[in-house]
Design a protein around this nucleic acid. Structure first.
Lengths: 240, 240
DNA sequence: CAGTGGTCTAGACCACTAT
DNA sequence: TAGTGGTCTAGACCACTGC
């Protein structure tokens, strides 16, 4: 049978399927927690074989966009799931427990992107941003002094400090339909500044683990820059 | 056709294929850089379909054990390849280049495992170990003070300091047939000790990125513990 | 029971590599 | 040209879920 679509196609069919499914996710046809149609239905809809759909879904599962549940169906991964949260939150007690962090927001401000922020978020210098400062705690102990920077145009009406929830990625998804799919991180060590020391209740110059994260949505657009400065006595960052 | 092997099998066929291929790698039937038999040959040898062999190979490629080259064949990943090296060496200049580190070995000693080393290497306390101390440089600048700890019984006749090469994983593979397949890392920040400060040419208490790595061979046995203490000005550790 | 994903087979054609 | 992996199809049976 003819395996070629009517037009000349540069990419393999299963990648085209993946992209079409991604578009439907981005458009909000399916939201977090939903079951998507079965492989056989998708195959019929898209005019390809079940095997091709399967290969596309396999990739999306590998990328944590979807989750399979045998006998039940394929689901859109939810930003409320522990698995999703810990995909990005990698600081944990040395004992190995996974503890959900709590957050206290210090400030939410409008600013303009300086050169380095602009470069990392792939925007032009001077673009309006939202800057959130908060302190995150594990087991009631403040351990992360964090700055979150967003492209303001993508997050219209961002709430003021008291209304900012703990799970930001869940907020992005629910409020603006922005799903974080990928995050690239760079780690360094550095001494705590006086402000960080005060927020974390440690001495100035205490060595902190500094994590610089650029988070991207499903269409691979940089939407958030996050600088996390972590105390690491009794805690560690898990790599891999 | 009957898809069941003669015996009752708990695991899927493709996982059994994967395990059989892994055994042949561990036994040294194929060594780094070799082409392994084609999918169709393996399928015939093992009495399964090409699709099943393919699924097993896919997993092994994903785990960086094999590499495919279209039109040429499937190869055993080599510990000399840049891709293999940078799978584990994740400290790089902020400019984004990938630079091969150089190493100067300070000492190679025999010791006995203390409680914490024993726990991480999954051996009993007091087991003989080899402890290698070295300093690694990027662009001629010393940036990592490193301690490597090996289970001595697995590395009989480990060379003395002047004969220790830069690429240890290549040495393990060539000399003892031990291939590193996985490494789990924990990261922390800490101030440089006087010894570290001297080795790295920095002030004592300079914040260092401390990476604790447990490396495992293809049968998932912990074989190496590595503590890397890194200067991170102008450099960063890449996560993911 | 019907429907889902999970595994497995068999066979086709394509793109790339080597000779 | 022959051989390799890469893609795609079609159809089978299994294991698990929920009604």
């Amino acid at each position: 049978m003819n395996t070629q679509p009517t037009e000349i196609s540069l990419k393999p069919l299963y990648q085209q399927v993946r992209e079409r499914l991604l578009l439907r996710l981005i458009d909000g046809d399916w939201i977090a927690g939903d079951v998507i149609p079965s492989e056989i239905q998708l195959a019929r809809e898209l005019g390809v074989s079940q095997g091709t759909v399967r290969k596309a879904l396999d990739e999306m599962v590998r990328d944590n966009i979807l989750r399979r549940k045998q006998g039940r169906g394929t689901f859109v991964a939810s930003s409320e799931d522990a698995e999703f949260v810990f995909q990005f939150f990698r600081l944990q007690p040395d004992t190995g427990d996974r503890v959900m962090p709590a957050s206290v927001v210090i400030s939410v401000r409008r600013e303009k992107a300086n050169a380095s922020v602009a470069q990392l978020l792939e925007i032009t210098r001077g673009t309006e941003i939202v800057k959130i400062e908060r302190v995150r705690s594990l087991n009631d102990r403040p351990v992360i002094a964090e700055t979150v920077i967003l492209v303001r145009a993508l997050f219209e009406g961002f709430p003021s400090a008291p209304e900012v929830p703990n799970n930001l990625y869940n907020l992005y998804a629910k409020r603006w339909g922005i799903r974080i799919g990928r995050a690239d991180e760079r780690l360094k060590a550095g001494g705590a500044s006086p402000i960080e020391a005060e927020r974390l209740g440690c001495a100035p110059n205490t060595p902190l683990l500094r994590v610089e994260r650029v988070a991207r949505d499903l269409s691979n657009r940089a939407v958030e820059l996050r600088l996390s400065n972590c105390l690491t006595d009794g805690l560690h960052y898990t790599s891999g």
